[in-house]
């Protein structure tokens, strides 16, 4: 040995075997990508079984004829685009998703700022309370909203009546019903934005604000030149995530209006259900549900590319 001490031959043999075994385990463990893959494997399998396979199956279904006996390519999509009702569904889905996401983002941003400025333990209480709409199962909370909008016994109408106003057919007139579905979605989704933005706000280094103050920046300038640039990634990801989820919304419209009155609140998911499941045209239903997929995938690609680019810039 290098220090001049000696060890009898064979005395190290068992120890070296164990060390070799330990070493190979360590080597495997050190191989970080393998470990990461193994840890992720259960999730990958779940996603493959419950997301990837159904997605590809839906794409396959959307290319079949009504009886599911012949391949028709993109004919179902071409057929849908010609239908007036489906054009209405596209308009409503976009109106519903974009309006709701913009409102949720704005309200979430404002509430997150207000929350950020609440000192100490009180913030935790308010944070918990404001998360309640997001925590309650959506179907249940929408049912409560439906009772409040109920055609005949609306709680809101009762209040209006107390002040001498007439009943409002909340879910009986197209534009009012559209507004109601958006309001419920905003009520449900704002806490998600709020909590994400609050987390982002807390991660903005205080020194940046101090430096901006020294440079003479006011509150608005701090917002536009410090807060927003620092939150840009989280805003992008939150908006993208919410847009995808809102475009896929089913519960709210299904429970509140079932797509009525006169198809004026149908979104992709409810229309797909009506066409595919209720009317027995599963391929057409699959086509409806997949309609936004290319557009959302396209948007997701660019948003995530922007996020990665900015992350690299910050890291550099």
């Amino acid at each position: 040995m290098a220090d001049g001490s000696s060890v009898p031959i064979g005395a190290m043999a068992p120890a070296s075997g164990a060390a070799r075994q330990k070493g190979s385990l360590h080597k495997l463990a050190r191989h970080r990508s393998t470990t990461a893959f193994l840890l992720c494997l259960p999730l990958i399998l779940l996603i493959a079984a419950f997301v990837v396979y159904p997605a590809f199956y839906a794409i396959y279904l959307s290319m079949l004829n009504k009886k599911m006996t012949a391949f028709v390519g993109l004919n179902n999509f071409a057929f849908l685009l010609k239908r007036h009702t489906f054009q209405l569904v596209i308009f409503q889905s976009c109106l519903f998703a974009i309006t709701a996401v913009v409102l949720k983002a704005l309200l979430g941003f404002i509430i997150a700022h207000l929350m950020h400025n609440i000192p100490g333990g009180n913030q935790k209480i308010w944070r918990g309370l404001l998360l309640v709409p997001w925590v309650i199962p959506l179907a249940l909370s929408t049912l409560s909203w439906w009772w409040m909008f109920d055609p005949s016994y609306s709680a809101f109408n009762w209040i209006l009546n107390q002040f001498g106003f007439d009943n409002v057919p909340w879910l009986g007139v197209g534009w009012i019903a559209r507004a109601c579905t958006i309001v419920v979605n905003v009520w449900y989704g704002t806490p998600f934005f709020m909590i994400m933005y609050l987390a982002a706000l807390k991660s903005v280094p205080e020194q940046l604000y101090e430096a901006a103050s020294i440079d003479g920046a006011g509150a608005v300038q701090k917002l536009f030149f410090v807060t927003l640039p620092m939150m840009r990634n989280i805003i992008a990801i939150t908006v993208l995530f919410s847009l995808i989820v809102t475009f896929a919304d089913f519960d709210i419209v299904r429970i509140l209006t079932s797509g009525g009155p006169q198809d004026m609140t149908h979104v992709f998911a409810t229309y797909a259900f009506q066409v595919g499941i209720q009317s027995g045209d599963i391929p057409l239903g699959a086509s409806v549900s997949l309609f936004m997929f290319p557009l959302l995938a396209f948007a997701a690609f660019f948003v995530l590319r922007g996020v990665t680019k900015r992350s690299k810039e910050i890291a550099a």
């Binding site: 005949s152 057919p169 909340w170 879910l171 009986g172 007139v173 019903a177 009525g260």
Partner: peptide, 12 residues
Amino acid sequence: LPDDAVSYDDAS
């Protein structure tokens, strides 16, 4: 018919 007839469901 009732003013809200268009928003009736099977329970209304």
